[in-house]
């Protein structure tokens, strides 16, 4: 049973399916999410896959300050997701309200409506920042589930530092 449990946990870490929800933003962050999933940065190499339904997803990427109108919809969609479920707030608006802070019709952040696991600030965040946020979240999840981070993404391991003999001069180092 322990082996099966471990296998399932590892599979969950290796294939986090994400669902994307816009709660009243300007589409800037949404475009950057798409850019992060595209081949240049390629979030899919971690097994991240964009799916069209909250029922299939493990992680919800949420952008925008939550407007009054969309709050019940967001909560209903969050309830539709299957456990274990996590939420990433992407963009300044989703983190704290952003430029809409102090407006009469927003709640000021996704964490006012549903619990949030990770925040990615920026207006909009660069695709590499979204990538970093997703990787941080995966590391946290790996810790929670007891999977070693090395299994998570072997290609992300730091390359061995180049050995340079400090006693020699710079010119000789360049020759070797």
């Amino acid at each position: 049973m322990g082996f099966l449990r471990r296998l399932v946990d590892k599979a969950k870490i290796k294939s986090p399916w994400v669902f994307h929800f816009n709660s009243g933003g300007c589409n800037g962050c949404d475009i950057e999410i798409i850019a992060a999933l595209m081949p240049r940065l390629d979030l899919e190499r971690f097994g991240v896959k964009l799916v069209g339904s909250p029922r299939h997803a493990d992680i919800m990427l949420c952008t925008g300050p939550v407007t009054e109108q969309i709050k019940p919809r967001l909560q209903r969609i969050y309830e539709q997701m299957a456990e274990p479920k996590y939420v990433v707030a992407i963009g300044s608006c989703a983190c704290s309200g952003g430029v809409f802070r102090g407006a009469y019709n927003v709640l000021g952040g996704v964490d006012q409506a549903i619990p949030v696991t990770a925040y990615v600030p920026g207006c909009p965040p660069k695709p590499s920042a979204i990538m970093h946020g997703a990787y941080q979240l995966l590391q946290v999840l790996a810790e929670i589930m007891g999977v070693s981070p090395k299994e998570l993404a072997p290609e992300f391991e730091e390359p061995p530092a180049p050995t340079v003999d400090t006693t020699e001069t710079g010119a000789e180092v360049a020759q070797t």
């Binding site: 309200g97 802070r101 102090g102 000021g108 952040g109 964490d111 006012q112």
Partner: peptide, 28 residues
């Protein structure tokens, strides 16, 4: 009418959206 100058924000909506942290889980 929220965009009129004399709209006084009687329900404190503008103060509410100046959040300082996540809302506790039991209030969600």
């Amino acid at each position: 009418y929220p965009l009129r100058k004399d709209w006084a924000d009687p329900r404190g909506l503008m103060k509410r959206s100046k959040t300082t942290g996540p809302r506790p889980k039991e209030e969600l």
